[in-house]
Amino acid sequence: MSNLEYQANQGASLWQNNPVLVQLLGLSPVLAVSNTVVNGLGLGVATAIVFILSCVTASLARKYISYTWRFVWYLLIMASYTTILEFLMRAYYFPLYQELGIYVPLICCNFAILIRMEIQSSMLNWKLTARDSALVAAGFLLAIVLLATLREFVATGSVLNDWQLLLATPWLPEVNQSATTGSVIFSFANLQPAALILLGLIVAAKNMLDSRFGFGSTAEKETVKPVTRARVTGSL
């Protein structure tokens, strides 16, 4: 069993087995659109909706999905929901949709969802599936909002600079909906390396908190064993 399967099999939980902070799954949207809180919140909520809907659909259609081609069916279910969501977003939240770019259609290839759907294949009831996927989706949302808050605060010194993007377009047509950026203090935080480094710092802070208060998962408690040297040459 590979490391991927082992980590995913740990069971759903918001903090101890967070899909992003512990399992490092579904990282690409988290890193790419976490430059402002509004973008992170928008993509996180969209991912959570697709997550729950496609998990429930897969569990209801379990009888009809052939085992060999199950990943193709999972991807097709996710792609259908993502297409619907993409068009709804284009209709109601067009400025936010433009900000998110190709990461809205890319919700359909989030590894966190795919692996969770594979694990949930043993669950009998769709209610159990919905509860489980809601937990994991909440963990995803928590991680992306945490990283986005940190990044926007480091970059501009304030958060929620472009909150008007969260208002739906048809009800407030006269509001000028374009992305405004606050005065940038530390522009390195907007670049790609800073996203990776800040996420690494968040993971390290989580590990420290877990070891301090003792509610961490077992995965990071493993210590590096010193190498034991065995004599293999010469006469023994």
Partner: peptide
């Protein structure tokens, strides 16, 4: 605290 995922993320940031 940096063992495992955290140091991988930070070093990937340096590669980036």
């Amino acid at each position: 605290p940096f063992r495992g995922a955290a140091i991988h993320l930070v070093s990937a940031g340096i590669i980036a």
